[in-house]
């Protein structure tokens, strides 16, 4: 039993590892506000495109652009705001890799099956 407590005393105090001083905080805050401005500009750009240029850009190009910008925003939220970028690589991969793998599969299935159902519906209506 005493061995157990000896071991436990050596367990690192992860809760206190992120504590930093004023100077470090200043650079962190600068980075955070920078990310905020980037995200705000991206959102305004999306709305602007949605308002004005939906015809000139073409439907498919617009969709790809929006999905790309959304994933860019998601990257900033997860890696800067949620501090995943500061974590160990092991944690990064454990969070990101299984999710990405599964979401590609899910999106592929949804779109393939959805388009197929649309064709079937068309086929039945025109008979």
């Amino acid at each position: 039993m005493s061995d157990f407590f000896e071991e436990y005393k050596g367990y690192p105090n992860y809760e206190k590892m992120a504590i930093h001083d004023e100077a470090h905080g200043k650079t962190t805050r600068k980075k955070l506000w920078m990310v905020f401005w980037i995200m705000l500009i991206v959102t305004l750009f999306e709305l602007f495109i949605g308002f004005k240029y939906s015809e000139t850009l073409g439907e498919t190009n617009k969709e790809y652009l929006f999905i790309f910008l959304t994933i860019a925003k998601a990257f900033f939220i997860v890696f800067v705001f949620m501090h995943l970028g500061d974590e160990k690589n092991a944690l990064k991969y454990v969070i990101i890799a299984p999710y990405t793998l599964f979401i590609f599969y899910l999106a592929f299935m949804a779109i393939t099956e959805g388009v197929y159902s649309w064709h079937i519906k068309d086929l039945l209506l025109h008979q």
């Binding site: 160990k88 944690l91 599964f102 099956e113 159902s117």
Partner: peptide, 30 residues
């Protein structure tokens, strides 16, 4: 992973919750 127990499991919870929302949005896409 270099993080505390609570934070690690908060991440795991968020991944499972994210999968719930992705399935909803994929059903919407379908």
């Amino acid at each position: 992973f270099g993080v505390s127990y609570g934070k690690l499991f908060m991440w795991f919870f968020l991944v499972s919750d994210a999968l719930t929302f992705s399935s909803l949005l994929c059903a919407y896409g379908f």
